Computed example of a mutant assay.
Amino acid sequence: MDELDSAIIAHLQRDARQTNRELARTLGIAPSTCLERVRALRNRGVLTGFHAAVDLRKLGLRLQALLSVQVRPLSREVIEGFKTYVAALPEVLSVFVVAGNDDFLVHVAVEDADQLHAFLMDRLSQRREVIGFRSSVIYQHVNSAVGGPVPGVN
């Protein structure tokens, strides 16, 4: 990756809907060069997709929480099985496999506290491998850049 690749990524993180011509003009390069670079970044797996930011509250999902989950026995099979199960649930936004006292952090969005309680009782506590969980309600969430800071770009 060079400085141009880093600049392309930074600009796409701010606005992935801009046209190739707009991006090329902003960067001071030819549209064909810009398109070539973006394609190369996608082919190398640096750019993995383009996403829409959604206001969950406007969709009626007013409550977000982080769930700390412990599973046993700790084995690759149990970790992969639970990860696959929980990631497919419609309330789940993100799943993190972590080290430490907990095995997973699960980010969920639901309508209200009653729906969170139902999720915990009906979805998590029913799983045999789950030996414990805690929930932390998110009061505020500040988004950072989609992929974090890009090296070489201020």
Rank of each mutant, 00 (worst) to 15 (best):
A109W: 06
F104T: 03
A40K: 12
Y85H: 09
V46P: 11
S94D: 15
K58F: 12
R62Y: 07
L63R: 09
F96L: 14
Y85F: 11
L89S: 09
V106H: 00
G49M: 08
L61M: 02
R57F: 14
V108C: 01
L93G: 03
H107W: 15
Q64G: 10
A30F: 03
P90L: 03
N43Y: 12
Q70G: 12
I79S: 01
E80G: 10
V71S: 00
T48W: 11
L67C: 04
G60V: 01
V38I: 01
L74C: 00
K58G: 07
V78P: 04
G81F: 07
I79E: 00
P73W: 01
L66N: 12
L74S: 09
H51W: 08
R62W: 11
V98F: 08
Q70L: 14
F104Q: 00
R44Q: 08
Q70A: 13
A88R: 11
L66M: 14
E91F: 03
R42W: 14
H51Y: 12
D103M: 00
V92Y: 08
L105I: 07
V92G: 07
A87N: 00
T48N: 05
F96K: 12
I79Q: 07
V110I: 05
N43S: 04
L59M: 11
L59K: 13
L66H: 10
T33S: 04
T48V: 15
F50C: 05
A52M: 15
S94I: 13
G60L: 01
G49K: 10
G49Y: 05
H51P: 04
L93A: 09
V54R: 02
L63W: 07
L41V: 00
D103H: 05
V98G: 02
V106Y: 03
A99N: 05
G81A: 03
E80V: 13
L61Q: 03
C34A: 10
K83C: 06
V46Y: 14
R39Q: 07
L59C: 08
K83W: 10
A65V: 07
L47K: 06
P90E: 09
A109D: 11
H107C: 09
G45C: 04
Q70C: 14
V46C: 07
L41W: 03
L63N: 04
E77N: 01
L63K: 08
V97P: 09
L105R: 12
R37T: 03
N101Q: 15
E77D: 03
F50T: 10
S94M: 14
C34W: 10
P90W: 04
A87I: 11
V69F: 01
P90A: 05
L63S: 02
L89I: 07
R76F: 15
L93S: 06
V38Y: 01
A87P: 06
D103Q: 01
P31E: 06
L89N: 13
L41I: 02
V108R: 11
R42Y: 14
H107V: 08
L93C: 09
